[in-house]
């Protein structure tokens, strides 16, 4: 199963836990090929590769994921769609809590565990977000944010095949997120694939209304989504109160060569790890549509 567009990935990191098996060595080849140019944006030294991957993801979205999401949106009534969205939110809340704990936010972690307990019981397996009604706010955490809190720099921007926008740091975080994802540990393969497919379709369906707005707003959709992703991640790491940036400062002093090297290394090992982790069930992990 796969996911694609930038918007999807931007929306909730929680949904980007798919398709490990699809990250084949073919991607590595594309990655290496893309490193030839000397792109002028220091935050995006892999721009050539990233744009290619972005187009690939967009294409996949157009032919497969968006149409399925549109069908889902039309066929499933809103209360059911909210239930599905809540269910996956609940599934992710334990990991959110663990990340809050790792970031030294014990209160938030307790809040998240409380949410999990309440929604799993009173909320009938998470279908209803009762905890939010009770004032236990839902948090957005993942391991990439935890790494950011620990002081790990974000590194270069990368567009991953299927997963969409990340940074080098968030790519590392993603590996851990995928391993920690409860859905990954569902043994029954058809059930696991169904859950994965449903999570992607649900997340994509939520984004349908924004498609037109983004098309209209962006001079360059790739750059628009990239910059929104980077801003958004910075905001998330600081839980909504990032240090104010000097808006008028022009120069962005980021060295580019070491970043590229670091990126290559990190992505390379990510792909290897993914391939390894999924070596056994890879063949049965195909898209279900």
């Amino acid at each position: 199963m796969m996911m694609s567009t930038g918007q999807v990935s931007l929306h909730l990191c929680a949904i980007g836990r798919f398709a490990r098996s699809a990250l084949t060595t073919g991607c590595l080849v594309g990655l290496l090929a893309a490193c030839a140019g000397a792109p002028p944006n220091p935050k995006d030294p892999l721009e050539g590769f990233n744009r290619a991957m972005f187009s690939f993801n967009e294409g996949l979205d157009q032919v497969l994921i968006k149409p399925v999401a549109q069908g889902y949106d039309a066929a499933v009534p809103l209360p059911a769609r909210i239930g599905v969205s809540n269910f996956f939110g609940n599934v992710g809340d334990l990991w959110v809590g663990i990340n809050n704990l790792l970031q030294g936010k014990g209160g938030d972690a307790a809040n998240d565990v409380g949410r999990l307990l309440i929604n799993s019981t009173l909320g009938i397996l998470g279908l209803f977000d009762v905890a939010s009604e009770m004032g236990l706010e839902r948090h957005d955490e993942d391991f990439g944010q935890t790494l950011g809190r620990w002081g790990v720099g974000e590194g270069a921007y990368v567009v991953l095949p299927l997963f969409g926008p990340r940074t080098v740091r968030d790519t590392g975080g993603l590996v851990v997120d995928v391993i920690a994802d409860p859905v990954s540990s569902v043994d029954d393969v058809p059930t696991r694939n169904t859950l994965r497919a449903l999570r992607i379709v649900s997340a994509r369906a939520e984004l349908l209304p924004s498609d037109k707005a983004i098309e209209q707003a962006a001079l360059d959709k790739y750059a628009y989504i990239r910059d929104a992703y980077l801003q958004r991640r910075r905001n998330l790491i600081h839980d909504g109160s990032p240090p104010r940036e000097k808006l008028d400062s022009g120069a962005l002093g980021i060295e580019s060569d070491p970043v590229v090297a670091e990126a290559m290394q990190a992505i390379g090992s990510f792909l290897l790890v993914s391939a390894d982790a999924d070596a056994a069930p890879a063949s049965s992990d195909q898209p279900t549509e």
């Binding site: 930038g6 918007q7 931007l10 929306h11 909730l12 957005d140 939520e206 984004l207 209304p209 924004s210 707005a213 983004i214 707003a217 989504i225 929104a228 958004r232």
Partner: peptide, 9 residues
């Protein structure tokens, strides 16, 4: 939270 809300709001 994502682009959609970002635009809409």
């Amino acid at each position: 939270m994502g682009i959609r809300n970002f635009i809409r709001f």
